[in-house]
Amino acid sequence: MELALANIFFNRKAKNSKAVKQHNLTHAEVNRPYVIRGIDTDDRSVKDFLFTLGCYEGEKVTVISVLADNYIIHVKDARYSIDRDLAKAILI
């Protein structure tokens, strides 16, 4: 019981500190290459879909420009327009 409680507490703490520390693509400087640290989403299929585009941890990503609420990113020699929510999910 105690252990479980401790676990919950610990996990929550870990999660909170993670949220503060991590930077995502919305914080990226335009035109500077970054390395993707991870994809933060509850939706497994979104992660898998991004993977097929070559957007996964360890890969390089560059924000080309920010248009309206969309981010033009460069991954694996191709350009995509992604929305803000998706940009938030890509941790750098």
């Binding site: 939706d43 879909f49 585009l53 350009r79 995509y80 327009s81 929305d83």
Partner: peptide, 9 residues
């Protein structure tokens, strides 16, 4: 469901 917009330009 949270939806994402992604499109190749």
């Amino acid at each position: 469901a949270k939806t994402f917009f992604i499109m190749e330009l």
